[in-house]
Design a binder for these strands. Structure first.
Lengths: 210, 210
DNA sequence: CAGGCAAGGTAACGACCGTTACCAAACAAG
DNA sequence: CTTGTTTGGTAACGGTCGTTACCTTGCCTG
């Protein structure tokens, strides 16, 4: 009775194809509006494939979210907490953050997380914790260190970090999520991040002016 | 052949009941996962009601979004552009903005707009334009005036306004949208707005320190 | 080569959904 | 009271969906 976790050991290329096709359809149509037939139409083969590999529709969805999320959310992390220059660290982190948020995969997962929050509360919870939540906490550490070095003043570093990631998302992210515009180019992203960093730094910096 | 705009003149209380019940179910389950039966179960009567009043499911959905949005999005507007003190204006505006964003109605519409963007592009477009878009533009005007008065320096007022509304949404809005926490209390909202205003002002202010 | 076994395709089942045809009840007009 | 009309409830229809039973195919083993 292979109900659970169908043969996760074998690295099947078929599985990858199914996941890829399913992700595309899910991201376009949403969970409820996506039919297994539509996925198979894109992936080839038959429905029997999906039910052998993932059990059912929810299993397929969970697999997509967890596997893609693990891969994409890790890019939101800061690699070097101990950056020498705060402005450089913020800029680099902001760009990482923004290109992560703007990636098609994260856009798709984000969209689904919003509407399927009631159906998959655990998935959504871990999505937030390991993505935006962790990124914000890491940034808060960076800010805390800069505060201890006396470079900035901040009452609540966690809150300040939240403000920063909020500025990074901005209306740009909202517009992309709503399908009102395409993701920004690298140049646009750099400009937006630079502007946010400037605003953030000069609002938090203790002494000198640039 | 009453296909269009079924008798919009008469102020029917029945219509209000249907809209209310439908909004609740739509907001909870999403568009695709909501059945007409589920709405009727909550509103009473029979499906014939809905099809007489709204034509079909899409018509019902459009009615919900437009009527609710008109009412809620107007609260995002700034009443007095010519505020005397910038900090006061930003604070008042930020609180308006945040309580608007956190209202159950806007949360629900926001959730649906995200996933049904492909199905209702015009609705989503006008939702953004008349809501976040207009709010940001109005704020940009306020900032522009303050800049002309020499109170602040800002390269791009539209962008700065975007940063501000981004800070207002913050992770709080994201968490509420994802169903990870309940909307903040008035006290929490005031604290978050005050913090954002402080960060924004000191990053943009030309001369003095507080 | 023969036999068993896993994998995949086909088609069907039962449930549900949006929509509408049909009918009964309420009501207005004469 | 009678008749025509409008409103609202019932039930059914066509279609789709998730899921699975059944069967064919090809492969592995002896």
């Amino acid at each position: 009775m292979p109900v659970v976790a169908a043969k996760s050991g074998r690295p099947s290329s078929r599985r990858e194809i199914l996941l890829q096709a399913a992700a595309e359809v899910f991201f376009e149509q949403g969970y409820a509006a996506t039919s297994i037939d539509a996925i198979i139409e894109r992936a080839g083969g038959s429905k029997r494939n999906i039910y052998s590999e993932f059990g059912n529709k929810e299993g397929l969805f969970s697999a997509i979210v967890t596997e893609n999320a693990d891969r994409v959310l890790s890019t939101l992390a800061i690699e070097e907490i101990e950056g020498h220059d705060l402005r450089e660290t913020l800029t680099a982190f902001g760009q990482h953050l923004m290109s992560g948020y703007m990636s098609p995969t994260l856009i798709g997962i984000y969209r689904m997380a919003v509407t399927e929050a009631n159906r998959f509360p655990d998935l959504v919870r871990s999505f937030y914790d390991e993505g935006p939540g962790r990124a914000t906490s890491q940034l808060a550490q960076v800010i805390e260190l800069a505060k201890e070095r006396g470079e900035i003043r901040a009452d609540d570093c966690q809150r300040a970090a939240g403000h920063f990631v909020g500025m990074i998302r901005d209306n740009l992210h909202l517009q992309v999520i709503l399908g009102l515009r395409r993701p920004p180019s690298d140049k646009e992203m750099r400009a937006a991040v630079a502007s946010a960093v400037e605003l953030f730094l000069n609002g938090v910096r203790s002494g000198r002016r640039k």
